[in-house]
Design a protein around this nucleic acid. Structure first.
Lengths: 342, 342
DNA sequence: TTGTAAGCGTTATCAC
DNA sequence: GTGATAACGCTTACAA
C-alpha cells in the first residue's frame, strides 16, 4: 500500500479543471474579475477556495514582469530613527497590495550599493532610498533596469529625482534661530558623519545659515561622530575640552543629544541653566529626558505613508511624481534655555 | 531614422551566445562554477560582465522552486524593541545569501495571518515568527506549503516547533527574585496585552512564580496595556490609585518602565526611595533614564544572528534544528532599591 | 565537461 | 465571454 498521495500545491490548471474552464479564464477571473461572467466566476472562486489555490509567485513574476514588491534600503534599524517611518511605509504598502523587501546598509556606501543590486535582482519593482548621495553609476544602473526610485528623508528640489521628505537644512536653521534668540553666541554642533550623507551635511549647513545672520557669533565647533548615546556623550566631552565657553550644543539627532545631556550631568553642568542642548527627530524618549528635550519633530509617519503611495503610483503608472516637502516642527521643551550671563 | 535600439535586458541566452556555449553551461557556471572548465568559465564570466547580465528573478524562482528569500513578521517597528534583533537578522541573512521580506502585524492576529499568507504567496522560502501563539490552522497551512518556520523571542521546549530565544518566564522570575530580595512584598506589574501573546503571559507568570516562593506577599496588581511610554505612565497612575501601598512596579518592557518613572516623578514619588521600578529589554535609553533603569537584558543581536543561520539551514537542508535557549542578564542599575520601611 | 530539451505556472494575444 | 497557445527565462535530468 502507498502512503498518502503527495500533497501537491494546486496550480491554475487544477482550478481550471475543477471549474470546467480554461486556465486563461481562471487567470482573467483572478486579475480582472469583471471580464468574466458572474456564474463562471462563482464556479472558479469555489474551486479556488476548495483547493486552497494561491498563485505561484515565480510564474507570475516571469509572465507579468512584475513582482508587486518594493525594495527599501535604510541606513540602520538599530534604533528607532528609521524604524518608525518604515513602519508606516510598510503598513501603507500592504494597503496598496505591495510587499516590502528590506535591507540596511549600516551607513556604508559599498554595502548599500550591493544591496541595491541585490534587491533589483530579486525583482523589486521600485526602490525607496534615503538621501540622494550616491554614485551616479548606480542611478544609471537603476535607469537601465527601469526601476523607479523614490528618495526620502530629504527635500532637495535641485536634485533630478523625486523625493518625499523634509528640508533638513531649513529645519536646523530654524532650530538654530531659536537658540540664537535665547542669546547664545558660542555654539557647538554634534553631527553624524557627513561623508556620503546629505542629511547630516544639510543640518550642519542649516546651523551655519542661521549663525551667518547674527554678527557676533563665535566660530562653530563641529564634532562628527556615529549616531548613538555613548558617542554623543564623548563628543560633548570633546567639545567642552576644546571650547569650554560653549553655551549651547545643537545635536544632529536625539540620541546624540541624550548622550550629551548625560555627559553634561556627569560633568556637573545643569541643563539648561549652564548649557543648552537640542536634538533632532523627536524620538519617543525625547519627552522623558530630564529636562525634556527641545528638538525638531520629523514627520516620520506622513513620510512613510506618502512614500508608499508615491512609489506604488510610480511603479504602476510609470510616471514621475513631483518632489514633496513635509513640514518639520520645533518642539520647545526644557533643554533649551537663555544663555547664561557669564 | 530610428531611435537607439531598445536596451533589452540581457538573458542567459545572450550570455551563452556571446560565450559560444549552451545556456545550460552558463547556468551551471553561475550556480556551480566548479562543474565547468576553467577556460569556458572565464569566457562566460567575461560575457556576463560585458553584457551586465543578472539572472531574472521570476524565471529562476519558477525553475528552481526557491527564491532565497526569508519572510519575517514582527509585531511592530514603531520602537526599537524588535528593530535591533531584526537588524542583526537582516545583516546575517545577507551574509548567507538571503534577502529579507518584512511585514509587521501591529500586534494584530488577523493582520499577522494575512501577512503570513502573503509572504508565502510571495515565495518566501522560510518564515521567522515572533512567539508561538497562533491558530493551528496557520501552522497546517505552512506545513502544506512546506515552508519551514522558526519562532523567536521565546524559549519553550514544550512547543512542537523549533525556536531561538530566551525564557521570558524565567527571566522575569529572576528579576522578581531580585525585587523580593530587596524586601518588597507589595508588587504590581505593568504588562503588555496577554491575549495572543505568549511572551507577555510568560513574563507575568514569571513574576508569580517568584512570588509563590515567598509567603507574605500581597496579591499582585496586574495592569495590561499597550507598550509605550504614555501608556506606561497611565498604568502607573492606575496602579497607585488602586493599591497605593505598592512599593515596586515590575514592568514588562522598558518603555512602560520609563513611562512609569516619569509618572512617579510627576506624582512626587522618588525612585527608588519611595518606589522601585524595573524594566525588560535593556533598550539603549535604559542607561540614560534618571535613575538608570534596572532591567532584563535581552540578547537581541545573538537572537537575530542565530535565527538567520538556523533558518537558512532549515531552508537549504530541509532539516529541523533543536530549539535554542539564549541567556538573559539582569542589569542592576538605579531604579530598584530596598523596600521603604513604611 | 558540455549540449539538448523538457518542463516550471503564469499571463497575454489571438481567434472564436 | 471564453479557449488555444505562445511566450516568459531559467534549471536540470539525461544524453552525448
Amino acid at each position: 500500500m502507498d502512503g498518502p498521495p503527495p500533497p501537491r500545491v494546486p496550480t491554475l490548471a487544477d482550478v481550471a479543471a475543477r471549474a470546467g474552464v480554461s486556465t486563461a479564464t481562471v487567470s482573467r477571473c483572478l486579475n480582472a474579475p469583471d471580464r468574466v461572467q458572474k456564474d463562471t466566476r462563482d464556479r472558479i472562486l469555489e474551486a479556488v477556495k476548495h483547493l486552497g489555490y494561491s498563485p505561484n509567485f515565480g510564474a507570475r513574476a516571469l509572465a507579468a514582469k512584475r513582482t508587486d514588491t518594493i525594495g527599501a534600503i535604510i541606513p540602520t534599524m538599530d534604533n528607532s530613527i528609521f524604524a518608525r517611518g518604515l513602519q508606516a511605509f510598510q503598513t501603507a504598502l500592504v494597503d496598496h497590495g505591495m510587499t516590502l523587501l528590506l535591507a540596511s546598509s549600516s551607513y556604508r556606501r559599498d554595502l548599500e550599493e550591493t544591496q541595491i543590486r541585490t534587491l533589483v535582482a530579486r525583482g523589486a519593482d521600485g526602490l525607496l532610498l534615503i538621501g540622494h548621495d550616491r554614485d551616479p553609476a548606480l542611478y544609471d544602473f537603476l535607469a537601465r533596469h527601469t526601476v523607479p526610485v523614490l528618495v526620502s528623508w530629504v527635500f532637495d528640489p535641485t536634485q533630478p529625482r523625486p523625493s518625499v521628505g523634509f528640508d533638513n537644512r531649513q529645519a536646523m536653521a530654524e532650530m538654530t534661530h531659536r537658540v540664537l534668540a535665547q542669546g547664545h553666541r558660542r555654539l557647538a554642533t554634534i553631527s553624524g558623519y557627513t561623508s556620503d550623507n546629505d542629511r547630516t551635511r544639510d543640518r550642519v549647513a542649516g546651523v551655519r545659515d542661521a549663525m551667518a545672520e547674527v554678527p557676533d557669533c563665535a566660530p562653530l565647533n563641529v564634532v562628527e561622530t556615529r549616531y548613538g548615546i555613548e558617542t554623543g556623550a564623548r563628543a560633548f566631552a570633546q567639545i567642552l575640552a576644546k571650547t569650554p565657553e560653549t553655551t549651547a550644543v545643537i545635536c544632529g539627532n536625539d540620541l546624540l543629544a541624550l548622550g550629551a545631556m548625560r555627559q553634561a550631568r556627569t560633568m556637573g553642568l545643569r541643563v539648561p541653566q549652564d548649557i543648552s542642548i537640542t536634538g533632532f527627530d523627536d524620538m519617543e524618549i525625547a519627552v522623558i529626558a530630564d529636562p525634556p528635550l527641545t528638538t525638531v519633530r520629523v514627520p516620520h509617519g506622513d513620510m512613510g505613508r506618502q512614500a508608499a503611495s508615491m512609489l506604488t503610483e510610480m511603479v504602476r503608472s510609470g510616471t514621475t511624481p513631483d518632489t514633496v516637502a513635509l513640514p518639520c516642527e520645533i518642539m520647545e521643551r526644557g533643554s533649551l534655555g537663555p544663555a547664561p550671563r557669564s
